[in-house]
Design a protein around this nucleic acid. Structure first.
Length: 571
DNA sequence: GCCGTTTTCGGCCCGACTGTTTTCAGTCG
């Protein structure tokens, strides 16, 4: 059973409990459990096998039993019982922005509305007004919410949201009176997908910022327009909130709007136990109401006896505990990257010559790159055969002779065939500086076949790196069905590194898998898989993923100086 | 339903915005 399916059922349970008006803390417990299960890199099945479910924060005896039941039967009794009472269409009403459990329950109880379609019809016909608290305006809002729902495209990949957020901050920074503007939310935490964009500003004239914001050309619809807080829907289909805050409280607001929610709740809980209260306005002494901190995030962590915690870590997955004991990782930064080990050129499907990509890499301050074009077996691109590699090697040698303080490594991205053998003979691979092995075909093999296939490839003595190890494409293709633990074991045993592929459509390994790889002692490389020069910039997305995985400079091979890297690759 | 260097029972984060109110409930983040 897929972790996401377990999480879906727990969330659905929470939805139904909400509609029924059940204990809010019980509902929160289900949601927290769902979230933590979803963020797990490991399958719940294996946790059940090891009887370690209850080690997940927020999962106690009861929930562990229910999760066990879900994993074995696909559902659990209490959930089925509740499903008979609350029609799924009523639960679906909750997906409409502005419609919560109370409203959904009201419509169902009083009007028998049990689907979005029926609600839409009722709102159009003006049949909702007259219900307690409902008038024409609410009907309008419901219709608007349904429209938004129809257009909603779900979460946006970070690679798209980040430039959008940067564009908005850049434009608002020019508004008169703005002295500071920063991105918050999951964009700042560099989560791989983003539900909305949160931006925080300091300004002497908040009204001007609000007006400028809602007038931006990328705004499709204004959802809220207050004195200091406004929300819009953009043409790209993502919601953006902008907030103007008091400079004295900027740190508190930034912390609050950066989240994650779970991180904030944990901090507030800690504060409460110290007789403090944290809100987006600062840290206050509970008894006197006096403000103790608020200007900078560091101060706020300080009041709790904590060092600063990087946004990428703020998921309540152990970072607060680590901070308390001085065990926070010294996270890798983009400046630590000395070269890119996964680069395509015109020799296969890249858009630029080796000379051109080398120049671009040097402009970035890199000291080396590996040219890793595709091997020939890959039907969809012009892959290289052994004799092509010989000629390519000659070109690389020639270019290297003219370079100082920079080295082009001769490499290949060799296909892992369906049976786990590689596309090129060992004798050819042996001559190369950097061999990346990747799966590009037969994605749907069953778990055992796929695992054995990749383990076999990793066992080839000439392979240095496993490229985009799980094969997922964000929002497009599921990861391969893979026993990741076994793969990590094989990688460690053979000294093969795992790639964090920084392509915005891949981010593979993802944060959770990369963290497991680190914990298993498997080295990592962060590569862009560049096909066009602009893609070199994606390295920051890969570094962000690594940071979310608690990865340090020493965990990543392409932070090494050239000599040490070559030594490491030569093994 | 979880959880415990203030508790194994009684707590559980905090505030803005909206639309409906005439003091507030619901929703959202």
């Amino acid at each position: 059973m897929d972790n996401r399916e377990v999480a879906r059922i727990l969330n659905a349970m929470a939805d139904m409990l909400e509609i029924k008006g059940d204990n809010p803390f019980r509902i929160r417990a289900y949601r927290r459990a769902a979230q933590n299960i979803e963020g797990l890199a490991e399958d719940v099945e294996s946790l059940i096998a090891r009887e370690t479910l209850e080690e997940i924060p927020g999962i106690g005896k009861d929930l562990a039993a229910k999760i066990h039941e879900i994993a074995t039967t696909g559902t659990f009794q209490e959930y089925e019982k509740l499903k008979a009472q609350v029609p799924s269409g009523v639960v679906e009403l909750l997906t409409i922005p502005g419609v919560g459990p109370k409203t959904a329950q009201l419509f169902y109880k009083r009007k028998g509305i049990d689907s979005v379609a029926r609600l839409e019809a009722a709102a159009r016909a003006g049949e909702l007004r007259g219900l307690p608290g409902i008038k024409a305006k609410t009907e309008e809002n419901i219709l608007r919410g349904i429209e938004m729902l129809k257009r909603a495209s779900g979460r946006m990949p970070l690679g798209l949201a980040l430039p959008l957020a940067q564009e908005i901050t850049t434009r608002l920074r020019q508004v008169k009176g703005v002295t500071r503007i920063e991105c918050a939310g999951s964009v700042r935490r560099m989560k791989e997908t983003v539900g909305d964009i949160d931006i925080l500003a300091v300004s002497a004239a908040p009204g001007k910022v609000m007006d400028a914001f809602i007038a931006l050309p990328l705004v499709r619809e204004v959802l809220a327009h207050g004195e200091t807080k406004s929300s819009v829907m953009t043409r790209q289909g993502i919601q953006v909130d902008v907030l103007v805050v008091d400079p004295k409280a900027f740190g508190a607001a930034w912390l609050y709007f950066t989240g994650s929610k779970a991180h904030n709740i944990h901090l507030r809980d800690m504060a409460k136990k110290k007789g403090l209260k944290i809100s987006e306005y600062g840290v206050f002494a509970e008894r006197t109401g006096k403000r103790i901190a608020g200007k900078e995030e560091e101060e706020i962590y300080g009041t709790l006896g904590l060092p600063y915690i990087a946004p990428e870590l703020r998921e309540d997955t152990g970072e607060i505990e680590a901070a308390l004991t001085g065990q926070l990782p010294d996270l890798i930064t983009a400046d630590d990257i000395r070269g890119d080990l996964h680069v395509h050129s015109t020799w296969s499907d890249g858009a630029h010559t080796i000379k051109e990509v080398v120049e671009a890499a040097r402009r970035r301050g890199y000291r080396y790159i590996a040219i890793t074009d595709h091997s020939k077996g890959l039907g969809i691109v012009r892959g290289l055969a052994a004799e092509d590699l010989t000629r390519q090697r000659e070109e690389i040698d020639r270019l290297n002779q003219g370079l100082r303080d920079f080295r082009i490594l001769a490499g290949i991205e060799v296909n892992i065939r369906a049976d786990g053998t590689l596309d090129l003979p060992d004798g050819v691979l042996a001559k190369l500086d950097c061999v990346i092995a990747s799966v590009h075909s037969a994605f749907r093999q069953d778990q055992q076949t796929m695992t054995e296939r990749i383990v076999r490839a990793v066992g080839n003595p000439h392979v240095h790196v496993l490229g985009h190890p799980t094969g997922r494409l964000l929002g497009e293709r599921e990861p391969y069905d893979l026993d990741f633990d076994r793969l990590l074991e094989a990688a460690r045993a053979n000294g093969v590194a795992m790639e964090i592929n920084a392509s915005p459509y891949r981010l593979d390994l993802n944060d959770a898998h990369a963290r497991l790889a680190k914990e298993a002692g498997v080295p990592l490389v962060i590569n862009t898989d560049t096909h066009t020069l602009a893609e070199f910039d994606h390295i920051h997305l890969g570094v962000a993923t690594a940071r979310r995985a608690w990865i340090e400079k020493k965990d990543v091979l392409n932070t090494l100086p050239l000599k040490q890297l070559l030594k490491r690759l030569a093994r």
